[in-house]
């Protein structure tokens, strides 16, 4: 536990500035769930086209849903 002291915050910010990548290192089971804000909808398919997301953290942890990255609306009958 830490209370977000300025020094602590500064260290974290310095790190993020250096690396420049978003998200936390708590989900790194596969390359498409780390830095999810930067990953694209279809990167999952590099594991296999029929795959559904199966990592526990992906149920809680979403990728960027900006307008260029909305998942496919094509629905299966």
């Amino acid at each position: 536990m830490y209370s977000s002291s300025n020094l602590h915050e500064q260290t974290k910010n310095d790190f993020v500035k250096t690396v420049g990548l978003p998200d936390l290192a708590i989900s790194n089971g596969a390359n498409f769930i780390r830095h999810r804000s930067l990953s694209d909808t279809f990167s999952l398919f590099s594991n296999g086209p029929e795959l559904l997301e199966y990592f526990p953290s992906t149920f809680t942890y979403n990728y960027s849903q900006n307008y260029k990255n909305i998942p496919s609306r094509i629905e299966l009958e």
């Binding site: 978003p22 804000s37 694209d40 149920f59 809680t60 979403n62 990728y63 960027s64 900006n66």
Partner: peptide, 22 residues
């Protein structure tokens, strides 16, 4: 694909969105 900081922000806001899944 151009990702702005506000897009990242949206993504962060979706994180641990307890409306979903687990």
């Amino acid at each position: 694909r151009v990702i702005t900081k506000s897009d990242l922000k949206v993504s962060y806001q979706n994180i641990f969105d307890y409306k979903s899944g687990m």
